[in-house]
């Protein structure tokens, strides 16, 4: 019966390991749904990770760490927002600059913090009663942390806002066709700033999760490409928050396995798995082309908007 325990443990850990990816992806979905392609997720996550860690370390309060991490990610995203919305730069390059900047800055500032263990992490909790449910209990309700549930809750909330509220219509319209939205009196720039900011907040929160919960310490470059996986996952999840849940946990299980299988396979090769999967996952998606066409990228993704007259 050992393999069953294995599967259950893998799935349980998938939730833990997939949560930062989920948070980042939800944010990027919002940014891209409004038409802003923010390739700076890696940079925002590492900034969130560093500031989140230091804040939690100094204040000994992990929740303040999450808050600070999210805030820093949001602030960084506004820089990208300003460049893409007002200066109308090429968004791909601006995002790359943000990533380089974030990785560099945290590398410079974070040297003194390397290797210090964080004692103020958040508790793992088991939901009484529910954890006894066979199969689901051990996966969902045993030794999980609150952020996992917050992630799922946010996914549902953001899905609901995007598809069931008037603001959701506005966001999607701005991303599809800003000219039309503008002609109907929508403040395109404001909507895009808001969505970019949401993207930054969540990326920062995901980063803070990495340094507070996932691996309670600070290592330079600890995001290790997770920001790029987020960007890829945003595409695979067809810009849909609920699909993103599944995708994130799939990556989460890969991260766990790449750690768990180390006694048998060289760790470097295992580390490749999520990256390889990122490249190969679209091939699976490619099989159902019809789905892709119906739920294609937002029409104005990555395109700066300017009024006709200007």
């Amino acid at each position: 019966m050992e393999w069953q325990l294995w599967v259950i443990e893998t799935l349980r850990r998938a939730l833990v390991y997939g949560t930062p990816i989920l948070l980042g992806t939800l944010g990027e979905i919002y940014a891209e749904r409004s038409g802003i392609l923010n390739l700076g997720v890696e940079g925002m996550m590492i900034l969130g990770a560093f500031v989140g860690f230091t804040t939690a370390f100094v204040t000994k309060n992990p929740w303040l760490g999450f808050l600070a991490g999210a805030f820093v990610g949001g602030a960084a995203s506004l820089l990208h927002g300003f460049l893409s919305i007002h200066l109308r730069v090429i968004q791909v390059v601006s995002g790359l600059a943000l990533t380089l900047f974030g990785l560099g800055l945290t590398g410079v500032l974070g040297r003194g913090w390397e290797g210090q263990p964080l004692k103020a992490s958040i508790a793992e909790l088991s939901v009484p009663g529910l954890s006894r449910i066979p199969v689901l209990g051990p996966i969902l309700f045993t030794d999980q942390n609150l952020l996992v549930y917050i992630g799922i809750g946010l996914a549902v909330l953001l899905w609901w806002v995007l598809f069931k509220t008037s603001w959701g219509i506005t966001v999607r319209s701005v991303g599809e066709d800003p000219r039309t939205a503008d002609a109907l009196g929508i403040n395109v720039a404001l909507v895009r700033y808001c969505c970019t900011f949401i993207g930054g907040l969540l990326a920062g929160l995901g980063g803070a999760y990495l340094s507070i919960v996932y691996r309670p310490s600070w290592t330079q470059g600890m995001t290790a490409g997770m920001g790029w996986i987020v960007i890829a996952l945003t595409i695979f999840s067809l810009w849909h928050p609920l699909v993103a849940i599944g995708g994130s946990y799939a990556f989460g299980s890969l991260f766990y396995l790449s750690f768990r299988l180390q006694p048998w396979v060289a760790p470097e090769l295992l580390t490749i798995m999520p990256y390889l999967f990122t490249i190969l996952a679209p091939l699976l998606l490619h099989a159902s082309r019809r789905l892709r066409r119906r739920m294609g990228a937002p029409g104005a993704l990555g395109l700066p908007y300017r009024r006709e007259e200007e």
Binding site: L100, G107, V108
Partner: peptide
Amino acid sequence: QIVNVFTGLILFFLIS
């Protein structure tokens, strides 16, 4: 790592 800060910032200013 200060080199990356340089490059990131220069890139920001350049595209602006």
